[in-house]
Every structure is written in C-alpha cells, then in structure tokens.
Computed example of a mutant assay.
Amino acid sequence: MSGSFGITHSEERKAARQDLERLKKEHNFLEPDRGDLDDPNIKWRFSKPDYTQANLEYMKGKTKNHPAGSLELVVENLVKRWEMEASHFQDLDQWTTINKEKYRAQANGGQVFSAEETWKVGNYNWLMAGCKKELYDAEKEDFESSHRHFRGAFTKGFPWEVLEVFSGPPTVAFSWRHWAHFTGQYMGSQGAGELIELYGFGVVELDEYTKITALNIYYKPDEFVEALKGDISPDKLSKGKALVGPGCPYVQSINSHSNGV
C-alpha cells in the first residue's frame, strides 16, 4: 500500500495543484492527511515527498467520498500516514503511527515481520513475501529496488482508498481498493495506460494510544504481478466482494456474528 510519487517540474506541479483545488471545491473532496510534512525535525530517507500528483490521482479515481469525522476517513488517513512514514522516514524512531516494540505486519497469513524488518525491506517486499518467486522474489529485492520497480510502473501514483469499515478500535477491519494506470515499465514490461485495480481486506490492531500494534493484509499479489507482466488482462483481477468475501477469516467471523451463529 504505497502512493507517494512526486512530480518534478514546477509547471506540472502547479497545474496538478490547480486541478486538485478545483475538485476539492466542486465535489467537497478532502485531501488526505499524512501529517506535518513541513516538520523541520523529520529526517527524510531521500527527500521530502510531494503528494500533489498522488492526491490528484486519488481524487480523480476514488469511488468513495468519506465525510469528515467518519470512521472510514479516520482509518484511511491513518493508513496513509503510516505509508508515508514507512516509505519516507529515515529513522524508525520517527514513526508516529506504530508501537515499535509490539508492531507486527503480515500479508495473507504468511511471514510475520517486526517493525525493524519492515523498515529494512520496505512495504512492497513484506506485502509480497508470499508471491510466487517466479513472479516476484521478495528475498532478492531491497527497499530501493522494490520502490523503483513499482514507481517506474505507476508514473502518476498508486492511490489507495478505504471502501468499508467493518469494526472500530481497537480491532479495525476494513476493505480497500488500490489502483493506478500502468503508464510506465515494470521489469521490462511496458504499460499502455491500462487501469490496474487491487482489492483487499485489512485488519489493524491499535493500542490505547491508537498506535498500530499489528497489521494484517489480505489480497492476491500473484494476480497483480501477472497483470503487470502481461500474463493476464487487468480486467481479470479479482474484484471487490469476490475477494474479501468467504476467503477472509475476519469477514467469516463478522458474517457469523451478524447471522447469529
């Protein structure tokens, strides 16, 4: 879950900002809250990110418009702040979104990563640790190479949105959508602007200070890479209910309780 792809030219950035402000005014959209990026105490891994283009793509492509103060927007912004910190903070101690000592991250019930491990390998590699190695070998990639692959594929950003929240703190269960137009290159595969959409489910455990202690993500990484490689058509990717229905144990649990079982 990463979406921080800045644009480099001032004129492009200015045009993107104008479009973004127009959408905010016309549709009452809210920009994602990723924290205070102007804090002079932040030590950036590379340089301070610019989210103008990413926020514009998010507004142009999102399917939900969660109102201010809603649980859905709170969860969405928490995840976006976490992604920003994981992708851009130089030091793990700077992260404000996690309980460093307790934090654990896991994708699809696979390998469990500690805070130190996720900081070292990067979000893409722990999220894709269970992917078939012939498609993506996370053990052979590092933080820099993984970001290079996917930023190179999605040149205008890789937006993410919360679709629905099923339970509130301290255990927050939610469905999500991740999308982008494949306008760049992925490991030699050239995109033609195809829309790539990922759907999944997430469960976040929070402590008493609303810091993340555990993050569990469910989705289908193999299909995602196959679409980027051109092995399957993007329209064959699993969609919404088909993915987060009976396959996810948290949805099963929620459905069981709602049905009185």
Results as ranks from 00 to 15, higher is better:
G130D: 15
G152Y: 05
E139I: 04
D142E: 14
Y136E: 06
K133I: 13
L163M: 09
E139P: 02
R151G: 06
C131K: 00
K133C: 09
R151W: 02
W160I: 14
V162A: 04
E139F: 09
M128E: 10
K133S: 07
T155Y: 07
D142W: 06
L163P: 14
M128P: 04
F143G: 05
M128H: 12
W126P: 10
K140C: 11
V162W: 09
L163I: 09
F150E: 01
C131I: 03
W126D: 03
F154V: 14
E134M: 08
E161H: 11
G130A: 09
K133Q: 13
K132H: 05
C131A: 00
E141Q: 14
F143S: 03
E141V: 08
D137S: 11
L163V: 15
E161Q: 07
G130N: 12
R148V: 11
G157C: 11
R151E: 12
K140H: 02
G130S: 01
D142S: 10
G130R: 13
S145T: 00
R151Y: 10
W126L: 10
H147Y: 02
W160M: 03
D137P: 15
E161L: 15
S146V: 03
L127G: 09
K132M: 12
F150P: 07
G152E: 09
Y136V: 01
D137L: 14
C131E: 08
F154C: 12
C131H: 03
A138P: 06
H147D: 08
K132R: 14
F150Y: 13
V162Q: 03
R151N: 15
G130T: 15
E144N: 05
W126E: 01
M128S: 06
A129V: 01
A129E: 03
M128C: 06
P159A: 07
F150C: 01
Y136N: 12
K133H: 06
S146Q: 08
K156M: 10
R148S: 05
D142H: 03
Y136I: 08
E134Q: 08
S145R: 00
A129P: 04
Y136G: 05
K132V: 04
F143D: 07
L127Q: 10
D142K: 07
H149A: 05
E139W: 13
G152I: 02
R148T: 09
F150T: 09
H147L: 10
A153G: 09
A153M: 08
A138D: 02
E141G: 00
R151A: 15
L135I: 03
S145V: 12
K133E: 01
D137C: 15
V162S: 02
